[in-house]
Design a protein around this nucleic acid. Structure first.
Lengths: 101, 101
DNA sequence: TGCTAACATCATGATGTCGTTATAGCGTTG
DNA sequence: CAACGCTATAACGACATCATGATGTTAGCA
């Protein structure tokens, strides 16, 4: 249960989701991720390290660049499903609110 | 992106997952959740409040008891999918380790 | 060999979260 | 209405996480 919570924690940070989103199309080097996300280089490096340790992302040095890519694209399905569920939840919250008013 | 991260954060806490797990079979009052999880009453109340605000759980007072139940059982599908993905990730990490040794 | 670009790491401060203890609110029952 | 059980909240300390700015490290190239 602890491990699962930690896994969900990986996706519980906006900037981390942004980094993952940047990697949606395939491998990118750090600078490219920085450009796409608008985050600072230090911050991107940190999040990529976390994602690597979590096993979500693979690190591949190539010359002077370091490329990162999502290992299991099922990650994107999980994120999508979370998004769907969130939408359904928001809709139901609105319904409940309307029922009161 | 921020909202989605916050939603995932709901599931990023072991005790919160335990509370949700206790509610897997249907509605329970607070004391029942306390008994099933072994957590303190105050802590259970706190997590239930969070889950309520997040829209994951519905609060239903009945006499002097207060029952809680999961609104959209799709939540359990999300948790299951996270669990599966975590397993796949762990397996792949082991494979990568073996490949090195 | 020295410079530069790309990436990683460190130290720090600010903020957030978790769990506990104690207490308050509230409905029921005697 | 007094006492009790159930639930919620408040206050607090411990700890984790995040973002930043500065610095370290390494590879490639002049």
């Amino acid at each position: 249960m602890e491990a699962l919570a930690d896994y969900f924690k990986v996706f519980s940070e906006p900037n981390r989701l942004a980094v993952l989103d940047a990697l949606r199309g395939g491998a990118l080097n750090v600078t490219a991720v920085v450009e796409r996300t608008g985050l600072s280089q230090a911050l991107v490096s940190k999040h990529l390290k976390l994602l690597t340790i979590a096993g979500v992302v693979r690190r591949r040095p190539e010359g002077s660049l370091v490329f990162y890519e999502v290992i299991d694209k099922g990650v994107f399905r999980l994120i999508l499903q979370g998004d769907k569920l969130l939408l359904a939840t928001r809709r139901q919250q609105l319904d409940a609110l309307v029922a009161i008013l």
